[in-house]
Design a binder for these strands. Structure first.
Lengths: 204, 204
DNA sequence: CGAAATTACGAGTGATCGCTCGCATTTGTC
DNA sequence: GACAAATGCGAGCGATCACTCGTAATTTCG
């Protein structure tokens, strides 16, 4: 649908600039939100002129799209680690441990991205794919739950999967926002919350 | 610091207009976020001209401030209902029931407000008081927890209170977003999650 | 009724910001 | 070195939007 532009040939220097600009944009977006962030501020943060920014990105949305690309790629990789089929037989506590690890890592490495792509002022075009990815995760969690609790009605499986991801997402924000040294405490609490919710439903 | 302007005398018609405008603003803000919402769109939604809007609100921020006022007043009332000292001796399940009821009601009645005043594009001046109110609630929950589990170290009390409110806040969004007829299901699940987290820590 | 205050209008103004364009500099290739 | 392509600059254009102002209609109150 939305066609890529021809993409002129980039030199090494150019590719570095694009990374710089994306990094700067991530900072500015995180600080002020998408709508309030100005492209001039992003260029300034990266230490280049506005014109230079537009050598590499066709418009403001394209910058956010590059970030979305980054984030989705990292998320996808984390998901693949988190949903290792070998985890199927682990006890609940350990299963939770293994699944949330990669998800926390990717969000700690990309602070603010989660909030950015859920914000109301983000163009729908950019928010939608991330939402879709999120839905897919809920689906895969539902599969795991169904496999572990065969007696649970399908509707409950879905509900439980949604709630578990909501709990995870909420505490993930706390974990990411916390200073490095407190992080382990919050992660432990996150696991406790998930166990407390899931154990009565699907057993240990 | 920020002084109120003299506030000219309002007639009945004027007070109705202000309500209309605030209602319209709540809708527009919810749809597009604070930064992207235009004052002309708000005026149009309320069925008046831009000039009329500025008869009643000095600027865009003042409109959001009126909404913040509304929301905080309603929240305060809900909190007072939720923290009835008579609840102190109730069993956990019932305590949760009584406490979350008013909080859910106020947020169902004001959909979008919670997200609006947590958004990154909202001026700090307007977001801060709501955050403060939120912190106060965490404090009061900590008191309740400490009273029910005297053996729990103070640090754990605080952590538990924070996590409980995070869980509540996350699922509150789901409850509010859900269509009327599904709401009870999600509320039940919210209670289950809170019980599952809290019971192992402070008992039933 | 008549005067004063309040409410209402909507085209217009000034500032902001996304983005462009002409031109200079650097890099890669022969 | 010579040429082309890529990178870099920053003043400024055009559009958008918060907000104003002159004026007109409505309400209040004696």
């Amino acid at each position: 649908m939305a066609g890529q532009q021809p993409e002129r040939k980039r030199q090494e220097r150019g590719r570095r600039r694009m990374e710089q600009l994306a990094d700067a944009a991530a900072e500015v977006f995180a600080e002020t939100g998408y709508a309030k962030a100005t492209t001039n501020a992003i260029a300034a943060r990266a230490g280049v002129s506005p014109g230079t920014l537009y050598q590499f990105f066709t418009n403001k949305e394209a910058i956010a799209e590059a970030l979305a690309q980054r984030y989705r790629t990292a998320l996808q990789a984390a998901h693949d680690k988190a949903f290792d089929p070998g985890f199927a037989t682990l006890p609940l506590a350990e299963l939770i441990d293994r699944m949330i690890g990669p998800m926390i890592e990717v969000n700690v490495a990309n602070p603010g991205f989660k909030a950015l792509f859920n914000a109301a002022d983000m163009p729908e075009r950019l928010a939608a794919p991330t939402r879709q990815l999120h839905q897919a995760v809920v689906g895969r969690i539902a599969e795991v739950l169904a496999a572990r609790a065969p007696g649970l009605p399908g509707e409950s499986v879905r509900t439980t999967a949604v709630v578990a991801t909501q709990i995870f997402g909420a505490l993930l924000n706390t974990v990411v926002a916390a200073p490095e040294r407190e992080r382990e405490v919050w992660i432990a609490e996150l696991k406790r919350a998930l166990r407390g919710y899931l154990e009565p439903i699907i057993g240990a």
